[in-house]
């Protein structure tokens, strides 16, 4: 079963004179174990595609199937709950919650996704250990470096073991070493955990980890994914 299916999806952002067709007849599938790079210039529609894939935005036309559920017509509450179970996000900015510690940031995502307490704590410990964050667990996220922040964001995206991970320029703000750690984390996520990973990026460092690359320009994919 594909983790994500987009079939003929179109989406217009803004209204009136400011309306922009961000996606045009986009079709894409991402399967478990795949790491797909979504490449394209700024403003090409990468972020919109990720948002539509996650159900954060509704498609104007076409079909979006996420983890077996067709999002079109599904009530917002259903989409939200389904997204919680099936999607992990890594944003360009780590977007950690500054008042929380590293551990709490990750635990909060587990709690939102209804991961039972003990299992959540075990998973948090494992992820922090795997991503080299164990010694930072009780540090406030505002005290971390950019690379550390993004690794925490990755841990947060994975803690509820989502079948699909969406990442928007996850290495865009990172130096070489930090970017590589995050890229390896995403690749491991696909290989070891069997998750489908879709990464919007400009970063060529990620290419060696990708199983497939698709290109988007002016809201249109170059070739069928």
């Amino acid at each position: 079963m594909t983790a994500l299916l987009l079939d003929g999806v179109s989406k217009t952002r803004g209204t009136g004179r400011h309306a922009v067709q961000a996606l045009r007849d986009v079709s894409l599938t991402v399967s478990p174990g795949e790491l797909v790079l979504l490449e394209g210039p700024s403003g090409a529609g990468k972020t919109t595609l990720l948002a539509v894939a996650a159900g954060l935005l509704s498609a104007d036309a076409g079909r979006v199937v996420l983890g077996g559920l067709a999002l079109d017509g599904a009530p917002p509450a259903v989409r939200r709950k389904h997204r919680l179970r099936t999607v992990g996000f890594v944003f360009q900015r780590a977007n950690l919650l500054g008042e929380l510690t590293v551990r709490e940031n990750v635990l909060l995502m587990a709690a939102l996704a209804d991961v039972p307490g003990e299992a959540a704590r075990r998973e948090v410990d494992t992820l922090l250990e795997d991503l080299g964050l164990a010694s930072l667990a009780n540090r406030r996220s505002t005290d971390l470096s950019g690379g550390e922040e993004q690794r925490v964001a990755l841990a947060r995206a994975l803690v509820h073991r989502p079948p699909l991970v969406l990442a928007d320029e996850p290495t865009g703000n990172l130096d070489g070493a930090s970017g590589r750690v995050v890229a390896e984390g995403l690749a491991q996520c696909a290989c070891t955990r069997g998750a489908a990973v879709l990464v919007a990026t400009h970063d060529s460092r990620l290419e060696s980890f990708a199983t497939r690359r698709v290109h988007i320009v002016d809201g249109r994919l170059d070739a069928a994914g």
Partner: peptide, 13 residues
């Protein structure tokens, strides 16, 4: 506001 947006994007009610 930014924290609220993150929480909503993560799926918080």
């Amino acid at each position: 506001r930014a924290e609220m947006a993150v929480l909503l994007a993560l799926g918080a009610e």
